[in-house]
Design a protein around this nucleic acid. Structure first.
Lengths: 215, 215
DNA sequence: TATTTTGTTAAACAAACGTTTAATTAGTAT
DNA sequence: ATACTAATTAAACGTTTGTTTAACAAAATA
């Protein structure tokens, strides 16, 4: 029953090399700053193969954003849409998202750097992702939180803020790696995840404050 | 004594229109995604004027980054390098930076979106800014903080994080404006500044936690 | 085996790119 | 008025851009 294997495999291999090379190049040079010939050379395929598989340069970008948006949204859904307390929900979400960001750091960089730009076709796609994301955060974080504290918090503020907090070491990595090589290596790991959770929940130096409240 | 006024005024006017139009276009379409002819048309100048004033497209980008980096660094210096307590230092810094970000939101978007990209000439310039920024944050925030809490915090983590937190509503504005128009209008204002300070210092829903510690 | 589908290639397309040049205008200084 | 400097212009430079086309190889289907 492997009558399709060889062909499909060949397809998958070339298509995969293209998208892998594209993410790497887009992350370091930007989407508009990367030429299709340069990409074709990096992926070791013929120039025409890119539009053969993806249709256009813009659809290739969309395919990349799709990986990040779908993955990040799925994590938010599975980790936040639960019944347990707010604190552990957020802790788990940050842990999962941190692992995801680390494994997809170039996807993350492309997504964030292209976020403010208005490619005609993609802008609606980004908006639909943002809408779903904000709905989840509103329902699972903001409402429970304001019920607890009394003061309402907007998911339109909290959502981007939390995402940016977690994304920051990856966005600044090209800078920080020059300054303190190695410091950014352990970003995304367990220690880092716990630190983000701590700061988001309890602020900087939150340890003793956390103790103060819990006691 | 105004023998040079008219000439210089004309110069300043054209040069000013170019950099203003450039910031607006770069923020919405990206640096590489904006052509010099498009920019010339938007600034209402001849194409050749751009390289006449700035030398090259890349140097124009550098001039834009310069405005943001110098301004942000100056705020960090003046608001953080003081003798009072950590909490009010951070509060003042966030307030000033928020006002600055709001007044220069397009500069901010250009700086952040071009941050991970490696334009050969500009990469060193960004690194030197990052180095100075991190030195200040280390000396004025991280060291006093770890002396207080006992656990050390890296400025390479805290710096990018705080910057990203404050930048997030501006980076996501093109998205959030579609979802909740008006919500992003008041970003950067006093309420927003106080909220960022609160979250950074005490975490989300920090009010009652702050009370718990202070009492 | 013949046919159709799928992957791959080289070549060409017009359009847009950043940059440079030489000529021209206009305001200032001698 | 003359000479000088700075601002502005139109035109062209050679590359590079994203996209398309037609031809070709190979594998799957019939």
């Amino acid at each position: 029953m492997n009558y399709k294997v060889k062909k499909k495999q060949a397809t998958a291999e070339s298509k995969d090399r293209i998208i892998k090379a594209a993410v790497a190049l887009f992350a370091r040079q930007g989407y508009a700053g990367t030429g299709l010939r340069e990409l074709a050379a990096a992926a070791d395929v013929n120039l025409a193969m890119i539009n053969y598989f993806f249709g256009s340069k813009q659809k290739l970008l969309k395919a990349i954003l799709d990986v990040f948006f779908k993955g990040y949204l799925a994590i938010a859904r599975s980790e936040l849409t639960t019944d347990d307390d707010l604190q552990s929900k957020i802790g788990r979400f940050i842990a999962s998202a941190g692992t995801f960001f680390e494994a997809h750091r170039d996807y993350l960089i492309v997504a964030i750097t292209e976020l403010p730009h208005d490619h005609p076709e993609i802008v609606e796609y980004k908006a639909s992702w943002g809408k779903q994301m904000i709905e989840i955060i509103d329902r699972e974080i903001c409402r429970p939180l304001s019920a607890e504290t009394g003061s309402p918090v907007s998911p339109v503020v909290i959502g981007p803020m939390l995402t940016s907090m977690m994304a920051s070491p990856f966005l600044f990595a090209p800078l920080t790696e020059r300054l303190r090589p190695g410091d950014s290596e352990r970003v995304g790991g367990e220690d880092w995840q716990e630190m983000i959770s701590m700061i988001f929940l309890w602020g900087i130096g939150g340890v003793q404050k956390k103790r103060a409240v819990l006691s």
